[in-house]
Design a protein around this nucleic acid. Sequence first.
DNA 1: TGTTGTAAATACCAATTGGTATTTTAAATT
DNA 2: AATTTAAAATACCAATTGGTATTTACAACA
Lengths: 206, 206
Amino acid sequence: MGKAVEKRTRNPELTRARILEVAFMEIFVNGFQAASVNNILDKTNLTKGAFFHHFPTKQDLGYALVDETLREMVLDRWIRPLEDYENPLEGIIVNLRKIIDSTEEKHLALGCPLNNLVQEMSPIDPIFKKKLAEVLEVWVGGIEKYLKKAQVRGYLNKESNPRRLAEFIVMNHEGAFGMTKSTCDRKVFRSLHASLKDYLQTLTPN
Amino acid sequence: MGKAVEKRTRNPELTRARILEVAFMEIFVNGFQAASVNNILDKTNLTKGAFFHHFPTKQDLGYALVDETLREMVLDRWIRPLEDYENPLEGIIVNLRKIIDSTEEKHLALGCPLNNLVQEMSPIDPIFKKKLAEVLEVWVGGIEKYLKKAQVRGYLNKESNPRRLAEFIVMNHEGAFGMTKSTCDRKVFRSLHASLKDYLQTLTPN
DNA sequence: TGTTGTAAATACCAATTGGTATTTTAAATT
DNA sequence: AATTTAAAATACCAATTGGTATTTACAACA
């Protein structure tokens, strides 16, 4: 009994994953530049040797975080759930609502991990910028796909431009999270959500 | 000829203003935490003595920047121009358009100074958070005022909630600037602007 | 089982960080 | 003109930053 794997005193993949996990929160709270490698080390109970073995530089850690963690989070939170809805427009609205309601108060104050990094790093690091734009495209492109499906199924005007609308919707999400970071009030989030809902309803046929 | 004032070798108010001006750009580009006091000093050709005479700590500089510089910028860019329009809704849209078109490419990539600071500092510094929320309220409250005026003048549905709509509009502005930071494409900004315009038109009587 | 590659620990480093104590000097006040 | 106030310069500081060189030890493989 007990998996042999867990008894190993060394597990490089797990170590790497732990670093990424702790780094995610550290960066989520403090931002990338202000996040301290030493702090991350303390919280993982690892040492410099382990860290810089897996990530040649702090920036490489950031890049991996965007490519792996953030990309996966976006898909999990914003795209994959839409598959469950016959009407994608409804899916977008209901999913957003669910996420608003299920997010803990303290996390509300931290905003959107992707948006945070875009705001901080895109202007000053071209590699970050490129990788973040790719994840953003996963998001926008994903929404776009479902908006096209909505058009086919007759839930969205043929005249609407799915790409433009997808950009608008993602922008709304990011804006709402950003705004909530200041007010820290779920009511504001709900209010913004209601406005978006109103708008989307004007785009439905009949 | 020549103003006597300019010949003074010392001018504390000017020194303070120069620090704020240079610090604004430094923080606009790098963020508050990553902005270096030494860099700011170099670019102003001043010394530590001057800096810490005017601002006891780096944080105090940040607070002054929000209270003075950012507050004034928000009024100048987003609120005061609305006075020129008979239809405030039109004013909001046209003013946004003007700002999109007149912002230099490189500044587009830097986003919105207020939004940047909100994202970075609100979660980790309660004083920043309070001051930033005050400036945000200047913005939202200002828009709200003109939306009420629009209702009185018959340009906006009586059923619309000016407060909620003002929050939505400001959120749109911040979201659009944030998004542009990633894409660095004025087209995206225009596209987002068009969506907001569409939405506002659905709220006009008749 | 002995060898080898690599995961991880340790100890160190130069550079930079925000900040301070002291001194100089310019301007306002008497 | 002498004195006082405060603006600004200088030189310094401890703490922290990301990063490296070296060593130790575990685990897969021959």
